[in-house]
Amino acid sequence: MAFAGLVGVSAGAVLVAEMGDKTQLVAMSLASRYRVRTVLLGSALATVVIHGISVLLAEVLGLALPADWLSLGAGLAFLGFGAWTLRGDELTEADEERAATRRAGSALLTVATIFFLAELGDKTMFTTIAVGADHAGTPLSWLAVWIGSTLGMVAADALGIALGMLLGKKLPEKAIRIGAAVVFFLAGLAMTWQGLSALLF
């Protein structure tokens, strides 16, 4: 398959896999708390890394990461994110002044970390591995799959961000915070259960 065709196949596969997925819901939640540019850039950075790992696994190892341990660890982290979101963050005037120069960087790191954890062991990660493994050995197939899967993922998250912005303008801050916490708790419980059941049964 031609390079451009493989980019398109990879982008389409990941875009479809991501529709209604937890990472897209996370994008909606984060868009109501952070700047759109920060959420989109954080999503893109996390996606480049996680899909790079997926392509490496497909091309070199041909094996998936141990999804049970990844799901368990990411699930526990998401439960922590849920509690943090529910508690909320309050800054004093002094804190606001000190954080003004650091806020963009720390918010970007937070968003990128959340997206990275959401994608570990997720179906879009395995979709990327499957597409990459199917075309392994073709010259530059790894690069085409990496580019395509990243584009597909960022496009899906952009839709989630747009919806989050739309809803964020119509909902009070407390409702947004509770809604975001519920998303994190549900994703965390599902991922923790998936990891535990794979390890125990």
Score class of each variant (00 low, 15 high):
residue 1 M to K: 12
residue 2 A to Y: 14
residue 3 F to T: 00
residue 4 A to L: 14
residue 4 A to F: 13
residue 6 L to G: 02
residue 6 L to K: 07
residue 10 S to N: 13
residue 11 A to D: 09
residue 13 A to P: 06
residue 13 A to C: 10
residue 15 L to K: 03
residue 16 V to M: 15
residue 16 V to E: 11
residue 28 M to G: 06
residue 29 S to P: 10
residue 33 R to T: 02
residue 34 Y to Q: 01
residue 35 R to A: 02
residue 51 H to F: 02
residue 52 G to R: 13
residue 55 V to D: 01
residue 57 L to A: 03
residue 58 A to V: 07
residue 60 V to K: 14
residue 60 V to D: 09
residue 61 L to T: 10
residue 63 L to Q: 15
residue 64 A to M: 04
residue 65 L to W: 06
residue 69 W to K: 12
residue 69 W to C: 08
residue 73 G to C: 07
residue 75 G to D: 10
residue 78 F to G: 08
residue 81 F to H: 09
residue 83 A to Q: 09
residue 83 A to I: 09
residue 84 W to R: 11
residue 86 L to P: 04
residue 89 D to F: 03
residue 92 T to W: 14
residue 94 A to M: 01
residue 95 D to R: 09
residue 95 D to S: 06
residue 101 T to S: 04
residue 106 S to N: 10
residue 107 A to F: 07
residue 108 L to P: 01
residue 110 T to K: 14
residue 112 A to W: 05
residue 120 L to K: 14
residue 125 M to K: 15
residue 129 I to R: 13
residue 135 H to Y: 10
residue 136 A to R: 11
residue 137 G to M: 14
residue 151 L to Y: 10
residue 152 G to L: 05
residue 155 A to N: 09
residue 156 A to S: 04
residue 158 A to R: 09
residue 160 G to H: 00
residue 166 L to K: 11
residue 172 P to D: 08
residue 183 V to P: 00
residue 185 F to W: 13
residue 190 A to H: 08
residue 193 W to Q: 10
residue 195 G to Q: 00
residue 196 L to A: 11
residue 199 L to S: 15
